[in-house]
Amino acid sequence: MLENLSADYARTARAKGVAEDDVLWRHVFRNSLLPLITVSAGLLPGLLAGSLIVENIFSINGMGQLAVEAVKGRDRELVLSITWVSGFLTLVGYLIADFCYTLADPRVTYD
């Protein structure tokens, strides 16, 4: 936000007489959201990876514990299923991020 407050488009909006609140929320905040959306797209598969560690430390039954037991037991179908779920969550995260891009920045279009 601090970098975008002094950007050219914010100074131009102020020079045109736009109110400071409108400059902050309509111009600066929307452009500052784009990196945050990019980082948050990888959170869904990261939750599964984090559960793997936490479930093994605290001996909690869940998806992470199931993945570890499947690898130890050489259960190929279960490992493939867990990998598929992780890949699907990654794709869903990227899809949600794309929708959020269009909400945050109206210049983004998909043809």
Rank of each mutant, 00 (worst) to 15 (best):
M1P: 10
M1S: 14
L2A: 12
L2W: 00
L2Y: 04
E3Y: 04
E3F: 07
S6M: 03
S6R: 06
A7R: 02
A10M: 00
A10E: 00
R11I: 01
T12F: 15
A15H: 06
K16V: 12
V18L: 14
D21M: 05
D22W: 01
D22I: 01
L24D: 04
L24S: 11
H27W: 09
H27F: 13
V28Q: 05
F29Y: 10
F29P: 02
F29N: 07
R30Q: 13
N31A: 14
T38W: 07
A41W: 03
G42Y: 06
G42F: 01
G42E: 11
L43S: 03
P45W: 01
P45K: 00
G46V: 00
L47Q: 05
L47R: 01
L48A: 15
I53H: 12
N56V: 02
I60M: 03
M63K: 02
M63S: 03
Q65M: 13
Q65C: 02
A67T: 06
A67R: 00
V68K: 08
V68S: 13
E69T: 09
E69A: 08
A70L: 10
A70M: 10
K72G: 13
R76M: 11
R76K: 05
R76A: 14
R76C: 01
L78M: 15
V79Y: 09
L80G: 05
W84F: 15
W84Q: 05
V85F: 15
V85M: 15
V85I: 15
G87S: 09
G87K: 00
F88G: 06
F88C: 11
T90F: 13
G93H: 01
G93Q: 05
L95V: 15
I96D: 13
A97M: 03
D98P: 00
D98N: 08
F99H: 00
C100E: 11
T102L: 10
T102H: 05
L103P: 06
A104N: 08
A104V: 06
P106K: 15
R107I: 04
R107C: 07
V108C: 09
T109V: 13
D111P: 13
D111M: 03
